[in-house]
């Protein structure tokens, strides 16, 4: 493993997820890290990937994962298509690297469980990339919650709305993404509730449709999910890709928490400068605020240094995945679905 005498070796597996670019940019700014990337395969000419993207970012690149892992990285960031997370996490674990895996953990329960088993067997860290819990506003909420300022929390509302992902085709291909808006957006709110309450979800009810972006979507674009937790809390999540493609910003994440001593509403990506484009009359919105990905990545790199498993870990990834799978089953059957712990 690394020592203070040499930089931490961090490998990025795949540029499939658009977050890969952001991670690479952050890593390149970090003087105590050396970065190597790989994004093998044949990519759509419409998407900037592979060596082209690496050159654009100015990051070192190899053509195969074999070469990438032969570099003996201390840590691997898996930013491949959701359905390929298992394969790549297993490869990285076998190479003895600590792993930060893009969310959602996987697209099936079997894959998720196999990933936990592989990383446990290899004795490496598995962290799942849920950045919103690193927002200072969430830490504020968590402090209020832990101090009892909210009293007994009894209800939560969350929304994670965005545009139909368009920078990468696979996001809307259920074979690679695992589904639509339910897969993409439920897990962020579910992770926040994990971090806040440490409660187990008991049952899930969901409804969905495909009215928005109907010409391009191959899965649900709107979804509403209600969840009952074992601490009595009821939660509801709007995970819809309900942000118009023409909107000035991508969307956002909001959380409203109600307790016996009061309520807290958080708009995680809320702060922005508002204005108007004079020529078109279109609103200008210029969001500002800290980059949650930087805090997430910093926590991961620190954990790689210490070897201590950080949160959110694979177990959180698996529990949030179970909520998604239950929501998908509920949509398919029209029934409320119980979640089995284990």
């Amino acid at each position: 493993m690394n020592t203070a005498s040499r930089p931490l070796k961090v490998a990025v597996m795949s540029f499939a997820h658009t977050h890969a670019r952001g991670y690479v940019e952050l890593l390149l700014q970090n003087r105590s890290v050396s970065v190597l990337t790989s994004d093998p395969g044949i990519h759509s000419p419409a998407e900037t990937r592979g060596r082209t993207l690496a050159d654009e970012l100015g990051v070192d690149y190899v053509d195969t994962y074999h070469e990438l892992l032969a570099w003996q990285p201390d840590a691997v960031i898996v930013t491949s298509e959701n359905a390929h997370h298992r394969e790549h996490v297993e490869l990285a674990a076998r190479a003895g690297a600590h792993i930060l895996c893009e969310k959602p953990l996987a697209t099936t329960l079997a894959d998720g469980e196999a990933m936990l088993a592989a990383t446990q067997a290899a004795g490496v860290i598995l962290m799942v990339a849920f950045p919103v819990r690193f927002a200072s506003t969430f830490l504020h909420l968590k402090a209020d919650y832990d101090a009892g300022a909210l009293g007994d929390v009894f209800s939560v509302r969350g929304s994670n709305n965005g545009k139909l992902p368009s920078a990468r085709e696979w996001f809307t291909d259920p074979a690679l993404s695992g589904g639509g808006a339910l897969v993409d957006h439920v897990v962020h709110i579910a992770d926040l509730l994990e971090a806040l309450m440490h409660a187990a979800p008991l049952s899930v009810t969901a409804v969905a449709n495909q009215k928005l972006y109907a010409d391009r979507a191959k899965a649900e674009t709107a979804g509403l999910v209600s969840i009952s937790y074992d601490n009595g809390v009821i939660a509801a999540i709007d995970c819809s890709w309900s942000r118009a493609e023409t909107a000035p910003t991508w969307g956002g994440v909001r959380l409203s928490v109600a307790g016996t001593r009061g309520t807290v509403d958080v708009d995680f990506f809320g702060p922005r400068v508002h204005g108007l484009d004079s020529a078109s009359g279109v609103p200008l919105e210029l969001p500002y605020g800290p980059d949650f990905d930087a805090a997430l990545l910093g926590t991961f790199l620190e954990a790689v240094g210490t070897g201590v498993q950080p949160q959110p870990d694979g177990a959180v990834g698996l529990r949030t995945l179970k909520i998604v799978l239950a929501a998908q089953e509920s949509v398919a059957t029209g029934r409320t679905v119980q979640i089995v712990e284990g």
Binding site: F154, S155, R157, T205, K211, S226, I234, A236, A258
Partner: peptide, 13 residues
């Protein structure tokens, strides 16, 4: 508190 989910005849939720 309560959360109610409605499915409309139009398919809206």
């Amino acid at each position: 508190a309560a959360h109610v989910l409605l499915t409309h005849a139009s398919g809206a939720i």
